[in-house]
């Protein structure tokens, strides 16, 4: 019977199948956050990704979690993810030692609007673990720095010991082709930087609002306050881009969990222009 004798799907054609990657490097960023560098199976390379996209990372027998890609787009053979322990799945992923295996599905979602940025001032605002998803965009901009206007980075975290990519942030501070302000919610005497919300740093950022594009990633409250402040400062709301977080379970628009109004955040997001989501952001429980 031809109707029952279907050929099995070709390898890799099933969107549910994770591909086993080997952990090559594991760097502790903070007490509960690590950065993993993953290698694709021998003879293959990770699929190309756009800054702002995410993968589903999987641990055998434990489960899957949606994690943003934090690596340098110019180094396509390395898949880099920064993971904070928030449950048993992320605990297992973050605990993966070099040589162990992490399954990967992806990349998924829309990325940052990289084509929109050349010729414009770029304001990057990251809150907490919002920095890793912005890192590929920052590295891409820095790789072709001359194509962009001013580059302003504001990075906020809970406390100084919660800052990730610390060495890289320090190196960025020393560059004269970007300005970075780091602020924390609270600090001890050993912190000589700013204490306060990222929005409090905006008045000190130098950019021409009308010719600025802004990239925002962090807790939703921070996104809302920052987008509002940027719009008030004169940045066009369609040039303010937010990376939204919802319950991404399947990452392929099938499971329904990440719906945000008409959007499946895993497909039409996670990056949205503020103008498109402002009404929903201001409404509760959408």
């Amino acid at each position: 019977m031809s109707i029952v004798g279907e050929a099995a799907p070709a390898a890799g054609s099933n969107p549910w199948w994770p591909t086993p990657y080997r952990v090559e490097r594991r760097v502790a960023e903070t007490g509960d956050t690590v950065t993993l560098t993953l290698r694709a199976p021998t003879g293959t390379a990770p699929p190309a990704f756009a800054p702002g996209q995410f993968n589903m990372l999987y641990r055998f027998g434990v489960g899957e979690a949606a994690i943003s890609i934090a690596g340098d787009p110019a180094r396509p053979t390395e898949l880099v993810h920064t993971v904070r322990v928030a449950g048993k799945v992320t605990e297992s992923i973050a605990g993966a030692a070099p040589g162990e295996t992490v399954g990967v599905r992806g990349p998924y979602g829309t990325g940052w609007p990289m084509d929109d940025l050349p010729g414009r001032d770029v304001v990057v605002v990251a809150g907490g673990l919002g920095l890793p998803p912005l890192r590929p965009a920052l590295l891409a901009i820095l790789a072709r720095r001359e194509r962009y206007g001013r580059l302003e980075v504001i990075y906020g975290a809970r406390s100084p010991k919660d800052l990730v990519f610390y060495d890289e942030v320090q190196a960025w501070r020393r560059r004269d082709d970007l300005r970075i302000q780091v602020t924390v919610d609270a600090a001890g005497r050993d912190w000589y930087g700013d204490v306060g919300l990222v929005t409090a740093r905006l008045p000190d950022a130098r950019f021409e609002p009308a010719r600025t594009s802004a990239l925002l990633c962090g807790p939703e409250i921070m996104l809302r306050l920052t987008a509002r402040a940027l719009e008030q400062a004169g940045v066009p709301p369609e040039r303010i881009f937010l990376s939204m977080e919802r319950n991404m379970k399947c990452a392929i628009g099938l499971c329904g969990h990440c719906q945000f109004g008409p959007d499946f955040v895993c497909r039409t997001g996670p990056v949205f222009p503020y103008a498109a989501v402002r009404d929903r952001l201001d409404r509760r429980e959408v």
Binding site: G127, L197, G218, L225
Partner: peptide, 17 residues
């Protein structure tokens, strides 16, 4: 108002979520 907003956000401890 700004200090109050900041205090509120700090109470939420948003980066921990």
């Amino acid at each position: 108002a700004e200090r109050l907003e900041m205090a509120r956000v700090q109470v939420l401890d948003v980066h921990r979520r």
